[in-house]
């Protein structure tokens, strides 16, 4: 039986893990390689590294970090943040990343999804979508959720799927950092609409929120950061809870 995936997300800045509350006020939560190893040993199903460094030599630093992580852990991991070209992807995959995630660059140049899927296979192309509800309509936002676009979230999700994305990472900017639960409604809507898996992100505050996003939200995977980094919810406890609640998880 295919299990629901629990995915800790590590925000990376200059080689260190950080996590913002509503994407500002960064707090330092440790060494990414060490954290990755701990999560992998605790039973995380996958990891996501999101690079938020904005300097010129970020590529090299990131590729080095990816190499260290791939040497150390034996579960799949995705790398995102500022990836816009085929060459960017090549460097990260060669360093040992399993998948890459693109966001703003896909909005700016949707064809890049087709090109990356053709070059590397859909299985390694994750398209991240940051969404915010404005007066009852869901709009795609870019630049860490700060910049609104005219794209409707549901139609954009359908388009990236048609262009060859392998998975969608859907973050509700209205829920991110609130710890009040995932955006189950839009997650369910998008997951039901698409033939590819949807990873839900933003709003995890307790174990029940994970159960809800896997059941009501129809998510294939759920991603969270600070509740894992600050050990508010240990992954083994979360999996025991989900199993008891009838959600299939890998133990």
């Amino acid at each position: 039986m295919l299990t629901k995936r629990i995915i800790p997300c590590l925000d990376i800045k200059e080689g260190r893990t950080v996590k913002g509350v509503n994407f500002v006020d960064l707090r330092d939560a440790g060494d990414p390689v060490e954290l990755a190893k701990i999560y992998s040993d605790e039973g995380a199903d996958e990891l996501v590294f999101l690079d938020i460094t904005a300097t010129v030599d970020k590529r090299k630093t990131l590729a080095e970090l990816v190499g260290k992580v791939a040497r150390t852990i034996n579960i799949p991991f995705t790398v995102g943040g500022g990836i816009s070209t085929i060459e960017d992807v090549k460097v990260l995959l060669n360093a040992g990343a399993d998948k890459i995630s693109i966001n703003s660059s896909a909005v700016k140049n949707p064809k890049i999804i087709n090109e990356m899927a053709k070059e590397f296979g859909s299985q390694c192309v994750v398209v991240a979508i940051d969404t915010r509800n404005v007066d009852g309509i869901d709009f795609v936002h870019t630049h860490g959720g700060r910049k609104p676009t005219i794209l409707n979230t549901q139609s954009w999700a359908k388009e990236v799927c048609d262009r060859g994305a392998g998975e969608i990472l859907l973050t509700s900017m209205d829920h991110d950092g609130t710890k009040a639960g995932f955006a189950n409604e839009i997650t369910s809507e998008i997951s039901s609409m698409l033939t590819i898996p949807v990873i839900a992100s933003g709003g995890a505050g307790n174990m029940e929120h994970f159960k809800d996003v896997f059941t009501f939200g129809k998510a294939d995977a759920a991603l969270a950061a600070s509740i894992f980094h600050f050990k508010e919810i240990p992954i083994p406890n979360l999996k025991t809870y989900l199993e008891k609640e009838g959600v299939f998880v890998r133990k």
């Binding site: 039986m1 295919l2 299990t3 629901k4 995936r5 199903d45 859909s122 299985q123 392998g166 998975e167 039901s192 698409l194 033939t195 590819i196 898996p197 294939d220 995977a221 890998r250």
Partner: peptide, 14 residues
């Protein structure tokens, strides 16, 4: 039905 099964088959299975 894709409502129940997505393709590709992605994730951990026994």
């Amino acid at each position: 039905s894709y409502l129940e099964f997505k393709v590709p088959h992605v994730g951990w299975n026994n």
